[in-house]
């Protein structure tokens, strides 16, 4: 690890100012990606701005028909929150199945979403639920927020503060894990909210998390496993690597979509 400075500002404004004052500053949310990268000397931030001291970022609440989760809420806290369990029970399950206990106790929902790892679970859940992303500057839709592999709409000095999840009629998420990393080879989230049915896929897309309009249309007509049985996934949308080719990922998406629908319908 290279040496770096460390700051723990008390407010989001001060954090944003600190972020703006150094071109190589990095936000430390949970550090579950950033710190290993730094230990391997693959990242060299000049200063880490720890958001852990900002009180408002660690709450979970229900507001205006939305489940609002602060960006610094850990996966463990989401998994064990009564608020989450009563509003979107299977979102708690998503959090419960991320990584291992160490990751869940340090990693945060904001950190995961802002990192937008193409194999992470939260992006699929947020995109399927049609979450909105509140930042230090503005509010973004999930479509606008996710911009491809490890890329989001967040600007240099912008900090994600809250995620607002519409409370769905039903929601389910199923993941097929990479046997080595246990990240998603294909993870499918399915949600029906007031805005309609949405299906989002993580782990498999060549360009990160994406929606499956054909499945959404079919499930809108009939929210049942049989509705999506014949829907093929275009392999051109999918990534291919030593763990899984696009053909296999396409198959896994079909199976995981079925399992997610079953979970949502139950």
């Amino acid at each position: 690890m290279y040496s770096f400075d460390y700051q723990r500002p008390p407010t989001i404004e001060e954090a944003a100012t600190a972020l703006a004052s150094s071109p190589d500053a990095k936000v430390l949310a949970g550090g579950q990606t950033l710190l290993p990268t730094m230990k391997q000397r693959l990242a060299r931030p000049s200063v880490l701005i720890d958001l852990g001291g900002i009180a408002g970022l660690q709450s979970i609440s229900r507001k205006d028909g939305m489940l609002v989760i602060g960006a610094m809420v850990t996966h463990h806290a989401v998994a064990n929150s009564q608020e989450v369990k009563s509003a979107i029970p299977h979102l708690a399950d998503v959090a419960e199945n991320i990584g291992d206990p160490q990751v869940r106790n340090r990693g945060t929902i904001g950190g995961s979403l802002a990192n937008n790892d193409p194999a992470a679970d939260y992006p699929a859940a947020a995109l399927a639920l049609g979450a909105t992303f509140k930042t230090s500057q503005r509010t973004l839709s999930a479509e606008d927020f996710f911009q491809g592999l490890f890329t989001t709409a967040l600007k240099e000095n912008e900090i994600l503060t809250e995620i607002h999840f519409p409370i769905p009629k039903r929601f389910g998420y199923a993941r097929f894990s990479n046997p080595a990393s246990r990240f998603a080879l294909a993870g499918v989230a399915v949600a029906e909210t007031a805005a309609g049915v949405r299906v989002a896929v993580t782990g498999a897309g060549a360009d990160g998390v994406f929606r499956v309009p054909a499945m959404e249309a079919a499930l809108s007509k009939s929210f049942a496993v049989s509705a999506i049985a014949g829907i093929a996934i275009d392999v051109k949308l999918l990534g291919s690597d030593i763990h899984a080719g696009a053909d296999y990922r396409a198959q896994l998406i079909k199976v995981m979509a079925r399992d997610a629908v079953t979970m949502a319908a139950s």
Binding site: P179, A180, S181, F183, I242, H243
Partner: peptide
């Protein structure tokens, strides 16, 4: 079922971490 070292054509070890080289775990 799980393990296999993979070198690409340039001789780079593609499976150079536990993220890519799959060791058996208890639940396997």
């Amino acid at each position: 079922m799980l393990e296999g070292a993979v070198y690409n054509d340039a001789g780079q070890l593609v499976t150079a971490s536990f993220m890519d080289y799959c060791m058996p775990r208890a639940d396997d």
